[in-house]
Design a protein around this nucleic acid. Structure first.
Lengths: 208, 208
DNA sequence: TAGATTGTTAATCGATTAACAATC
DNA sequence: TAGATTGTTAATCGATTAACAATC
């Protein structure tokens, strides 16, 4: 049934994943579209469509989908095989939160080292990863051919860090500094502006 | 020009706001759709449409929109006067990062207090806000009629905190715990799954 | 003027929803 | 069988993109 999984469907995958894991732990074997829809506040037909595009196996009328298979299919789409290595720059509160967040690895990325320019932080271990002097960032990335850089430094420092990462050959950058960065066309950039996200929630609330 | 501002447009407003404030500080007077689009990674025509529906004044061909006017218009739509008050639950690394992030207030939301169940944190002051005992969360929200709750506790505790917030009458919840939450239909919920976002970046990188 | 940017109308695209026959 | 749930095809809806004349 697989094929053309839309972006929106992909975005709902984590929802399905966490729900399915939950009810599996509770002992369930099958999940039907109406069940899932009810639990997740989605329309039944939407879930049906999503599952049809995601599942490798047809659902069974009257019962629904086998949870184990569905979980495998979803996980397979969310992370294809190998894990990508990443460095994190900026071991402050936000950086530390990510280093300690075990959920990240489930998505196919592993942070292998952190960097900071604060001597007080260098040498520390956070979430099992060492914090190195930011001066060594470039050499480190070059030598280990790190593909992903995560920027959690304060806004003022972000552009410089970004440049450093690009020069070190990193191919994808996740920018959480809240400031907009520019990168060469061949570098993938994803920016999260947490303030803006909170603002969006507020807008939605006000619109009700 | 103002009329039907679509939901999606409204959701992008915080993006525009933060960008415009940034370049205003840098001394800019006008902003054009192509400029904004480039900086925010949006299509130029999309921005043009958004601004046309948002701006009270026509843009000037060749120059663009006067930033001050645009900021006023956007702010006017985003916050009809008041700032929404929020409580933050979970004063760990992620929570602390938000409390210290001054960018949040620009989006029409003010965090007025933090809560935590760790006695070591209770009584501390982070980013100018007090950390209260989580036991007092409900009373606090009820008394002050707090409209927004921010969840930055570990995944395991999130559902309970969510329930508590809903019971306390909070109308909108920003969930950064990484676990999916369920709320009554009249409560607005926005969930950021940072792991999933990083995963999306990885997917995009892999696809290149 | 020439060129960049605007606003508007129409076309396209993608996602959601509806309808319905097929299946266990 | 009767009823619930499936997969698929078509209709609807909303948002984005394209095209282009108007403007400074």
């Amino acid at each position: 049934m697989n094929q053309n999984i839309t972006k929106k469907t992909k975005q709902r995958l984590p929802l399905y994943l966490s729900y399915l894991k939950g009810i599996k732990e509770a002992g369930a074997k099958y999940a039907s579209s109406p069940d899932i829809a009810r639990a997740l506040n989605l329309k039944e037909i939407l879930v049906r469509k999503d599952l049809a595009s995601v599942s490798s196996v047809s659902g069974r009328p009257k019962k629904g989908f086998e949870i184990d298979v569905l979980l495998d299919d979803i996980a397979g789409i969310m992370m294809p095989g190998d894990i990508l290595e990443a460095v994190l720059v900026g071991a402050g509160n936000l950086g530390s939160a990510l280093l300690k967040n075990e959920g990240l690895e489930e998505c196919g990325v592993r942070i292998v080292a952190a960097f900071d320019n604060d001597p007080g932080r260098v040498g520390e271990e956070i979430g099992g990863r060492m914090v190195f002097d930011a001066k060594r960032l470039r050499i480190f990335c070059e030598n280990l051919k790190i593909p992903i850089g995560i920027i959690t430094v304060p806004a003022v420092h972000a552009p410089l860090v970004c440049e450093e990462l690009v020069n070190a050959g990193v191919g994808a950058i996740w920018n959480l500094s809240g400031v907009h960065l520019e990168v060469p066309g061949d570098v993938v950039l994803r920016e999260e502006n947490l303030g803006a996200y909170l603002g969006m929630l507020a807008m939605e609330y006000r619109g009700k």
